[in-house]
């Protein structure tokens, strides 16, 4: 018991100043905490509850009719549009995310270079994030601003059709139709890469150049490994952005199901759709995490292994020490009882 007490950290009573600072800290984060609780956790729990019901919102009150897994079976078995859209979404996201990330990285490297009017160019590349949102984006798409006129999308689709299944070639073909729009989605990612690039120690490049490293080698050996965590971050951000923006037909479908007046649809049906969709989005995020999640390099692994070995050695030393103490006690006891003899050289033990 005494030992346990010793192991516990002593409770430190906060001083007046620290208490005040802690309170101020809590007050600062309070809006966020309330926001998360009210606008995220509560709707999340609510939608989880809703998905097991058929909900009718009448002027006299809300009717909850339990349907069990009825909403799910209806979505998968009676709504052919949802599975189709999910397949399209999967292909598009898997192809679009690398396009966005690579484009953002290229632009970030260029904007990080020593060029004239660098500030202006940085502003230009971030502008779409501010301007092209919601209805503006919808209008631009409807006016055909998302396509590159010189690109013959139909030929690309036909070519893809020759060696890919139709649903896959159609989805990938759509990416070429919306190429400009996809590139417009890169604003935030460029910013993240830019900040990561600026944090790389210039001494590394200097040392590499002294050793005769080319720009190409510097990119692969210094830049890319250093900003690798940012690639994962940007990939995840892109997946979430593509999955939740207004151009996503699944979002439109969920929204229209939510406000649909038909008796099968409504809040319950839309909630079930949204939960299944979020599960699929999570799976895609996991996929990118598995692909891009940082793996330690050989040096890191060796250090880790050495640390493990050192810990093991320390444990062995402690064990030997403990055994020695135990044996010493045993000998002491036996001596007291006088039945402990040491070897006297007579040949008898």
């Amino acid at each position: 018991m005494e030992k346990e007490k010793k192991m516990k950290k002593p409770k430190v009573k906060l001083g007046k100043l620290e208490k005040r600072e802690a309170r101020a800290g809590w007050l600062f984060v309070l809006p966020w905490v309330i926001g998360v609780a009210v606008f995220m956790l509560y709707p999340l729990c609510q939608s989880f509850y809703y998905m097991w019901f058929n909900i009718r919102i009448t002027p006299l009150g809300t009717k909850f009719i339990p349907v069990g897994t009825g909403n799910f079976t209806q979505i998968w078995l009676e709504n052919p549009e949802f599975p189709q859209q999910i397949v399209t979404y999967l292909w598009q996201t898997i192809v679009e995310v690398p396009v966005i990330v690579v484009f953002a990285l290229m632009i970030a490297i260029m904007l990080n270079g020593n060029i004239k009017c660098r500030g202006l160019f940085r502003l230009i590349f971030f502008l779409p994030v501010i301007i092209v949102s919601g209805p503006v984006m919808n209008m631009l798409v409807s006016e055909g601003a998302a396509t590159i006129p010189a690109m013959n999308v139909q030929s690309i689709k036909t070519a893809l059709d020759n060696f890919l299944p139709h649903s896959m070639s159609e989805s990938i073909g759509e990416i070429f139709s919306n190429m400009i729009m996809i590139l417009w989605y890169s604003g935030v990612q460029i910013l993240i890469f830019l900040s990561a690039l600026q944090k790389i120690d210039p001494a590394l490049y200097e040392a590499a150049k002294i050793d005769g490293g080319s720009q190409w080698e510097c990119f692969w050996k210094i830049t890319l490994p250093t900003i690798k965590p940012m690639i994962l971050l940007n990939a995840v951000y892109s997946v979430i952005f593509l999955s939740g923006n207004e151009q996503n037909s699944l979002i439109t479908m969920i929204k229209s199901a939510m406000f649909s007046g038909t008796k099968e649809k409504g809040y319950g049906y839309a909630s079930a759709m949204a939960w299944m969709y979020s599960l699929i989005v999570t799976l895609i995020v996991l996929l990118f995490f598995l692909l891009l999640g940082s793996k330690k390099d050989i040096y890191d692994r060796q250090v880790k292994r050495r640390k493990r070995e050192m810990k093991k050695e320390a444990r062995t030393v402690k064990r030997i020490e403990r055994r020695g103490i135990r044996n010493a006690k045993k000998i002491k006891k036996a001596r007291k009882k006088r039945n402990y003899r040491t070897y006297d050289g007579s040949g008898d033990y």
Binding site: L30, P31, G35, V38, L60, K63
Partner: peptide, 27 residues
């Protein structure tokens, strides 16, 4: 921080409809 928290709380209060909702179901 106090101002921020107050504005948030009042903002949320303003979002509510204040009539306690209609949970009855008379049909």
């Amino acid at each position: 921080s106090l101002l921020l928290a107050c504005s948030m709380v009042f903002g949320l209060a303003a979002c509510g409809n204040g009539d306690g909702g209609n949970s009855g179901n008379t049909g």
